[in-house]
Design a protein around this nucleic acid. Sequence first.
DNA 1: ATATTCATTGAACGTTCGTTGAATAATAGA
DNA 2: TCTATTATTCAACGAACGTTCAATGAATAT
Lengths: 235, 235
Amino acid sequence: MATKLKAGRPAKERLLDAAERLFAQRGYHGVSIRDITEAAGADVALVNYHFGGKRALLTRVFERRAEILNRERMERLEAVQPGADGRLDLEAVVNAFMEPLILRSARGGREWKSYFALVAQVNNSPELSVLMTRHFDPVVHKFIDVLKAALPEADLRDIYWGYHFLTGALTLTFAETGRLDKLSGRLCRSTDLESVHARFAPFMAAGFSALARRRAGAAARAKPRSRKAAARVRE
Amino acid sequence: MATKLKAGRPAKERLLDAAERLFAQRGYHGVSIRDITEAAGADVALVNYHFGGKRALLTRVFERRAEILNRERMERLEAVQPGADGRLDLEAVVNAFMEPLILRSARGGREWKSYFALVAQVNNSPELSVLMTRHFDPVVHKFIDVLKAALPEADLRDIYWGYHFLTGALTLTFAETGRLDKLSGRLCRSTDLESVHARFAPFMAAGFSALARRRAGAAARAKPRSRKAAARVRE
DNA sequence: ATATTCATTGAACGTTCGTTGAATAATAGA
DNA sequence: TCTATTATTCAACGAACGTTCAATGAATAT
């Protein structure tokens, strides 16, 4: 009934904020232009005036925070330094990729949370995942490069599949469906990002290591001359 | 234009199949009743006649294969036996949970693939994830129980969060957005379930183990009476 | 002060949405 | 065969959809 928040900020920004929140909660097709304009306290026509259409509004919302995020993640990934043993720490690499998300989500207020939920929606949609490619590929390629450096002996496919598992876990985390809350009888909270922060890197780093080890074992087993070595170890 | 496949099978079944495929591809709100009836070669009114509405059709599609799947997964989880050392093998536990999905998807034809993509859609949607709770909770609780048995020393929250990461990876896998294909320059294929099969359990088992280890270390450090010991070490 | 550009409004467009009811066809039981 | 039930078709409903346009208000520059 009553329009919401006709604050001093320009309607264009209010529309972006409302669209971000609603697209994140209900998905692109689950929200109408009228839902958005009503929530923003703006007229229906303004979406087309300012952005050129519903789809263009989604694109604008999506790219609005992508730059900030990409810069931060890229810096973190470039700053990962080898440890005392001269090797890159896998957990540090994973954290460089994930912490910019977690920290902004935990401390950056509701806006960033909505944005990440939107990214989760987009990432899982075959129709929209082109936006992921367009806006996040450079930082992902950088991530994979650093993973390669941290796991020089690993098969490239293992790294890609590991990244796939990692990003799937990240996606579901930011979707915040509340399912884990019910499942665990409120022992765990989807919104508790500190819990995610503490567990994510150890879990994923161990996963990557296991794939690399598995590969190394398979390679050793396949090589004729190292079969003797394996037998020796077994004795 | 032309209606598709008015085969001998009753329209009710054709509607279920078409709805499964389209909901999986485009999401609930991305598909109209007319899209579905047209693909099934049936009249628009039949959705309401047979199922009572669009939402009820989704529910019916969702639960159609859930029973078969639940029975199979439950049997697999109950059949996991302790190894020679008397402990449950983590990879075997993960495989009991995942293999029924992978194998059906790989060998069960396009129908099961669509179904899993639909489950992925539902799992990531706050609006629809109640369907997950309603139809898949028993088998998930069983899975978590077996995980507990395999990791008796682990904190319960670690197990729940580990399950969360695992199911996120599984969800993105079945969404088959094709993003990994582009990202890897066609080195990896989203549709290549054998590759997933080979890597999933090792990756996740290692993740769970890492969380349990981390916890064991933290618990030792946090015990009150060991504070003195810690102090002693510090001196 | 006037002219010009930008932002916003209100009303309407044609289309598609989910749903419904009456009419017809197909099937099964007596 | 007649009847009763079930399945399907056809046409239409009101509501909501994304979009458009002319009119109005506000801001800026000349």
